[in-house]
Design a protein around this nucleic acid. Structure first.
Lengths: 210, 210
DNA sequence: TTATTAAGTAACTAACTAGTGCGTTACTTG
DNA sequence: CAAGTAACGCACTAGTTAGTTACTTAATAA
């Protein structure tokens, strides 16, 4: 939570508080379910400020989404996977992805909401496309190195692999509520989470191994 | 779409039209985004009838969800996988799951919406728990047979496997909108879909193989 | 000190939305 | 065929909701 003392006028701080509150509300209730009044209240800002700084609800949602994506893409790059052996790099990525989803529950909920709306809010964001391209290239590089070292089989599509790495973590976490009921199983205990991570690491390594 | 001639009074037909329209609207816009008036109009029924037959919006959502889940669980059971060799049974399940998601886009959207609301609408549905238990047992049985035949390695958790089979299809399809933008790739062309299915079959078979 | 600009507020509005009151119309059964 | 019951419809309400209007207050530069 962004906290700044009130009374003092500070445009940047107010913007940050609004973004923070909006992220929480959009994640919790989706674009349609979130309420502008509620966001303003949570941000300790006047609703008028939201319209002043962001134009309207959807534009605000755009900024929230873009920031969320840039954050994870930045974190992925800062793992410096190119300095690790291919198999370690891949394992690190699987672990990181899993932990990022766990520690940033807002992220997957925002992505879900954006997909419900057919991704029209990020449709023209060159910044996101650039960041994602770098990420795909990164994974492609790991696969190439592994292939050359003889530890990975060849011909693996980095995009398909990326999707799968995201999927096996993301799905478990977003659908944990229905999952817990239907499979009559605890999804969020320390042991359950650890077990799933191990299973996912295993899945990915079996998929790439030569 | 359920179609019945108007004017003639037919409670079952009206209920069916309402459920059908509700499924479409809830899938399209989520529980929060769907509008009761719109559902009534699409159902060619009076809004009053929705409240008459289903009580309120959330109860209607409950029925829609329960029907959607029972439908896929029923379809899975009618595959009669127990009559197939273990590896064929598993491949058939992966293909079926993929095709079901493709042909019933409402299903994954409804499940997403339900998880946004922490699964409170299916929380007490014994029918669903029973149906899911049968399904988990089915997959468990396939794994056991494969293990005995020496084609599958032992110790695979059927629940984790189920989750993974669902995940690698579900995630690709729900997140295809953001995916298409970020990965600069067509997700829904015939070729792309076929490629993903092959990749997923490969992923699952490599995961279980002895 | 004063004029200017930007930050911030409260009260409002027009459109919408879930849910209802109350009446009408058709089918069914004794 | 009469009377009861269930299907159906209109028009309303009470409460929301995104967005706006018109204003006050603080910071800043001349």
């Amino acid at each position: 939570m962004v906290e700044t003392k009130k009374g003092v006028r500070d445009a940047n701080a107010t913007k940050a508080r609004i973004l923070d509150a909006a992220k929480g509300e959009f994640a919790r209730l989706g674009l349609g379910g979130a309420r502008v009044d509620e966001i303003a209240e949570k941000a300790k800002a006047n609703k008028r400020m939201i319209y002043h700084y962001f134009g309207n609800k959807e534009e605000l949602f755009k900024v929230v989404l873009e920031e969320a994506y840039l954050d994870i893409r930045g974190a992925e790059l800062s793992l410096e996977l190119e300095h690790l052996a291919p198999d370690e790099a891949l394992k690190t990525l699987v672990r990181f992805t899993w932990n990022y989803y766990l520690e940033n529950p807002a992220f997957i909920r925002l992505v879900n909401s954006e997909n419900l709306h057919q991704a029209r809010h990020i449709a023209e964001s060159d910044r996101l496309v650039d960041a994602s391209r770098k990420f795909t290239d990164l994974v492609g590089g790991i696969l190439k190195r592994g292939e050359k070292d003889g530890v990975f089989r060849k011909g693996i599509d980095p995009v398909q692999l990326n999707i799968t790495i995201a999927a096996i973590g993301y799905y478990y976490l977003t659908n944990r509520f229905t999952g817990a009921i239907l499979f009559e199983r605890e999804f969020m205990s320390k042991e359950a989470l650890q077990e799933r991570l191990e299973f996912n690491l295993d899945t990915v390594m079996r998929l790439v191994v030569a």
